[in-house]
Design a binder for these strands. Structure first.
Lengths: 127, 127
DNA sequence: CCTAAATTACGAAGAGTTTCGTAGATACAC
DNA sequence: GTGTATCTACGAAACTCTTCGTAATTTAGG
């Protein structure tokens, strides 16, 4: 269904701004984007127009400065990306992916506890 | 260090063959690649030549049919890819990524138990 | 030898991504 | 009104990835 959601890195940065701040003009997104690397205003505009064509964002043209909002949720985008990585690089082994995730960025004890809690939930749904 | 390892999807498929079968000729890789989608022999050859330039694989030219082997381990490649995804799509939250991984592909009770064991290990190293 | 098969090298084309300059339209300030 | 700033649209360039055809080389059969 949402398997086709595969935002590129540049698109993801824009989506993150929209997820965090809600509907924005191009100018607002441009201002809130990481300043490194610096991007031209029209670069961001063009990207957002393309994302609109791809249905990654919706835009409201009522005002002169169009208002863009994310058309995919963080969960949809993240789920699709992680599913893709699982298939292409981890032989669909969730366990292998988790090992690498923990190795790449060690979790704090609090996070580990949180993760255990999530595992309990996952097991609960197993039925 | 190995942050620069970012194999594309097509490159990953070739790496997977080399990881599973060990050093191979282009012909062997071509035969062992998934038949869907079908790829021309020279397409695979070209990809592997590029991968050699990128140092993703090494090649031995002693024989007429060069022998290629992976120059990066599964752990290196997977770790680099997951780290990248963590940064770009998950705000560096390992927990969020694990939630999405479990949602994208529910783990069996055996896997869940395995994952708990890995968490224990991770906690052990915490110091 | 001479041909047929296999292999590498090379180049080019098409698609997708990211970049940005320029032009035209609109709003705002004075 | 006139000029300045802002915004969108458009197109093109640079880059990467993926594809594969063709040519040149080497090997193996007969």
């Amino acid at each position: 269904m949402n398997d086709k959601i595969k935002p590129t890195d540049a698109e993801l940065e824009i989506l993150r701004v929209l997820w965090q701040w809600g509907p924005c003009t191009v100018r607002h997104v441009h201002e809130r984007l990481p300043s490194d690397p610096p991007r031209g205003y029209t670069t961001v505009l063009k990207l957002m127009q393309i994302m609109s064509d791809k249905k990654l964002v919706r835009r409201n043209e009522a005002q002169r400065a169009h208002i863009y909002e994310a058309a995919v949720s963080p969960t949809q985008a993240q789920g699709s990306l992680v599913k893709h990585l699982l298939e292409k690089a981890f032989d669909n082994s969730t366990a292998k992916l988790i090992v690498q995730a923990l190795a790449a960025r060690p979790a704090s004890p609090e996070e580990l506890a949180e993760i255990r809690r999530l595992l309990d939930e996952a097991e609960g749904e197993e039925k």
